[in-house]
């Protein structure tokens, strides 16, 4: 019954024989041992389990591991470059965009998708962009500030890179 899958998680191939019903989030947490991706509702409504699947944000509680076979997954653990935090992570830290931290990995991955496609979102675009992710601690205001902060940093760095070329 089990099916062999190979999923590239944060750049490294993870191979396992899995039940077809195994959720991607459980593959990440139980098979790959990456527990930064959280399970908050199992119904794709809270967004705590958001990861990037081939670069797009998905809720990994509603993706089967077998559907991710042969594809690339990025989790929150794969964002920082060694000791260097990703600008979105820096934004969340600097603007106090988290309290209990449980929704944070999903919120960060969702923001990653948002900024990838809308590098300079307005505040209301940020609010709309993260509307699939629930936070119960912050009232979202510092999260919006965190994404805004990250967007500025990323634009500045992109400009600098373009200038260097």
């Amino acid at each position: 019954m089990k099916k062999n899958v190979t999923i590239k998680v944060n750049g490294a191939d993870r191979r396992a024989a899995v039940e077809p019903r195994l959720l991607l989030v459980h593959f990440l947490r139980e098979v790959a041992g990456l527990t930064g991706t959280h399970v908050g509702c199992e119904t794709s409504l809270c967004g705590a389990c958001t990861v990037l699947l081939d670069g797009r944000a998905v809720k990994s509680c509603t993706v089967l591991a077998v559907q991710a076979d042969g594809r690339k997954v990025t989790t929150v653990e794969g964002l920082a470059d060694g000791d260097k935090l990703h600008p979105i992570q820096e934004g969340f830290w600097e603007e106090h965009g988290l309290q209990c931290g449980f929704c944070t990995p999903g919120m960060i991955m969702c923001s990653h998708d948002l900024l990838e496609h809308h590098p300079n979102p307005s505040d209301s675009e940020i609010r709309a962009g993260i509307n699939g992710n629930l936070c119960r601690c912050t009232g979202y205001q510092h999260i919006v500030a965190a994404v805004r902060n990250a967007s500025k940093k990323m634009s500045k760095r992109a400009t600098a890179r373009a200038g260097a070329r």
């Binding site: 989790t75 653990e77 969340f92 106090h96 988290l98 931290g101």
Partner: peptide
């Protein structure tokens, strides 16, 4: 900035 955050924002 919070001392708690580095571990939380990296999911570690």
């Amino acid at each position: 900035k919070r001392k708690e955050d580095p571990r939380l924002i990296q999911g570690i």
